[in-house]
């Protein structure tokens, strides 16, 4: 007998292990290693969220408050001037953050709910259901979604509810594809088989066995889908068939004030007015893309060099 093992205590060995880092500490370590672009993206996204949440507190005037002077120049009273019917530009920009981002977020959540659950169901059940869903998705994805959205909106009419449902449905096809393709690799694992043999239901397997294991790609996809949905809604509103007035929305604000751009030669700042909402859209999508880019790089471990 070896004396070394005689007074061995498992409890002591476990106790000797360094204290585990808490989740917060681990996140902080990852964040410290994040590149500048990711930091920039996170700060911008955070700022947008603050503005959207506290819009009524930040905005100097109301969303649809009309002042007598239309298309006013930038001044101390109206920091970014007023729009074509005399509403304060800055206030509308701030409320626009709430409306545009809120609608885009709702749409993305709905599309993940539909696409994600159908994708998981297809991956688990396989067979004819999987075939049916996958083939229908193939067909739906063969039509450019902006064109499809335009067609459906012309039939059902442009209301916010229709907009959210139509875009969520069209977008869920892509979520479905991704979820299904990652989930089929997890479904064949032994622990899923064990859960099935234990007699767990479909919902339990989806939530407890599959979802935690396919989270990273889904989270990254959520960011990408959000910026895509956001751009689609902005484009539709810009085309005049998306979010309807008097709701403050960045896409339609660009459209309504676009003709101010020709006065840039006289007063440069007036010419910039229609670009402000467009820049607000661009900045958010760029920021989200930076964050997603870093997140994907981190979770997949892809290296770009050889």
């Amino acid at each position: 007998m070896n004396t070394q093992y005689e007074n061995y205590s498992a409890a002591a060995e476990v106790g000797a292990v360094r204290k585990r880092r808490s989740r917060l500490e681990r996140i902080w370590i990852d964040l410290k290693k994040a590149p500048l672009s990711a930091w920039f993206g996170m700060i911008v996204v955070f700022a947008y969220m603050v503005v959207a949440l506290f819009a009524p507190l930040i905005a100097p005037y109301g969303e649809a408050e009309v002042f007598p002077e239309a298309n006013a120049a930038w001044s101390s009273q109206f920091i970014f001037g007023t729009d074509q019917i005399g509403r304060d530009m800055l206030s509308r920009l701030i409320y626009g953050a709430r409306n545009t981002m809120g609608i885009a977020l709702m749409t993305t959540l709905l599309s993940f709910l539909i696409g994600g659950s159908l994708g998981l169901i297809a991956a688990i059940s396989r067979g004819w259901l999987d075939q049916l869903l996958s083939r229908s998705v193939d067909v739906l994805m063969a039509i450019p979604s902006l064109i499809f959205a335009l067609m459906l909106l012309s039939i059902f009419g442009s209301t916010v509810t229709n907009l959210v449902i139509i875009i969520a449905l069209l977008d869920s096809t892509r979520v479905f594809r991704l979820t299904r393709s990652v989930a089929v690799n997890v479904v064949v694992m032994d622990y899923v088989e064990a859960a099935k043999l234990r007699g767990e239901g479909l919902g339990w397997i989806m939530r407890k066995e599959l979802l935690p294991n396919i989270m990273p790609p889904l989270v990254a996809e959520f960011g990408l889908r959000f910026s895509f949905v956001f751009l689609t809604i902005a484009a539709l509103s810009f085309l005049g068939v998306g979010i309807q007035p008097p709701t403050a929305d960045w896409g339609s604000m660009v459209r309504d004030n676009a003709n101010l751009i020709q006065f840039a030669g006289i007063d440069f700042r007036i010419g910039l007015t229609p670009l402000l909402p467009a820049a607000a859209i661009a900045l958010l999508t760029v920021a989200v893309n930076f964050v997603v880019d870093w997140f994907l790089h981190k979770t997949s471990g892809i290296r770009d060099e050889h």
């Binding site: 910026s227 751009l231 010419g271 910039l272 893309n289 880019d293």
Partner: peptide
């Protein structure tokens, strides 16, 4: 390229109009 991909088309278009049509009257808007 990462930036231009993420930008809406109309933003790019209006920036071009602002500079090359409004400020410098080179092209028609």
């Amino acid at each position: 390229t990462l930036t231009t991909i993420a930008m809406p088309e109309f933003f790019v278009a209006y920036i071009l109009i602002l500079f090359f049509s409004s400020l410098l009257p080179w092209f028609p808007s």
